[in-house]
Design a protein around this nucleic acid. Structure first.
Lengths: 192, 192
DNA sequence: GACCCGATCCTAGCACCGCTAGACAATCGA
DNA sequence: TCGATTGTCTAGCGGTGCTAGGATCGGGTC
């Protein structure tokens, strides 16, 4: 059975290579540049090999999104754990979120802008996505305020961050005042 | 000169037809379905005719966006003008904004998600875009709060609405609690 | 060691995309 | 009436995501 195991291992390794390469290419040149031909060339296999791992380009985007969700959750938790007051934690969370979006635009797009074939806010939502939302929830529950459902508050806060992230990156908002916008948002939304 | 005038008129008319058809097709079947071939077929001209009006598909998207911006500004002003307190105006504004996004998803995408080749937040930003932002600003200035720049406040409020609109439509938020989310947002962000 | 057979991979091609060159027809001014 | 200009179309380029079908390789069996 050792041969089969080796093959399985190699196959899994190649799958990771595909996802990593797609992500790298997307970060370098944008998702438009991630074509099945280019991707196949970079991993040094022919196009159809991609389709033996994923149903199509959409699923590859989805795989990058899941990888990104795990990283984002970790980044958010790391940023908030260093702070000692609820208010400071929320500020750190907001900055960490926007930083992640700015530093990993392609991953952020895969998560929240593109169609990766993933389901959100459902029971069958993949675990990494649920966990990323949980990372937000953990921090934001403390400042939701009395009588406000933490989930609802988290959704609103998250939507605001998402709006800032996407509008800034799309050139709809000038990046200069980002700090002021975060401060205003946290000041108003978070209950002390 | 009458002949030339007639031709100019017909040409302008055809341009309107292109934009209207693109918009209609996008609303019916999504922007992916708006291909130059299909668009040409619908207006009953050949493909190259499109390129005598617009540089390319991107400019067509931009034209739809500008048309949409004008409509959105009008819709926001209409909604807010019926209310008599600042707080009620802001609530009406938020609902009108999200309604517009929900009822005209393709136009909303052209405005804020897709690349229509337009510049935002600059001096050479097209007038309709500036005016749409102005419509938000007019209403939100009253609730920005002391010492807060109305423009900054408007950006943050707008980003929050944009986040809610896009995440909801992309399936990232369930549409059920939309009303509660708006109330929470207005309650916290708007200073009475 | 030779053979079979299944898994694996690639070549070639499909229909479609945005966009454009060049041929052709219609129309205008002289 | 004729030449020039304008307008439109046909045909085609290089690209896209995706797939059918043949070649090749390697493990398991005799």
């Amino acid at each position: 059975m050792s041969v089969q195991e080796r093959k399985q291992r190699e196959r899994a390794e190649r799958e990771r290579l595909i996802v990593a390469t797609a992500r790298e290419l997307a970060e370098q040149q944008g998702w438009d540049a991630v074509t099945t031909r280019r991707l196949a060339e970079r991993i040094e296999y022919s196009q159809p090999v991609l389709y033996s791992h994923f149903r199509g380009k959409r699923e590859i985007i989805g795989a990058v999104a899941l990888e990104g969700a795990t990283e984002m959750a970790a980044a958010l938790r790391a940023a908030t754990s260093a702070e000692h007051t609820p208010r400071a934690r929320v500020t750190a969370l907001a900055h960490a979120y926007l930083d992640f979006a700015e530093r990993n635009p392609a991953v952020y797009d895969a998560l929240f802008q593109l169609d990766g074939g993933l389901t959100y806010a459902q029971e069958d939502t993949p675990e990494p996505l649920k966990d990323a939302f949980a990372a937000l929830l953990e921090c934001l529950t403390d400042v939701a305020g009395d009588g406000i459902h933490p989930g609802l508050f988290t959704e609103v806060f998250w939507a605001s961050l998402h709006g800032l992230a996407t509008l800034t990156r799309a050139g709809r908002l000038l990046p200069g005042d980002a700090g002021q916008r975060v401060r205003l948002l946290v000041d108003r939304l978070a209950v002390a």
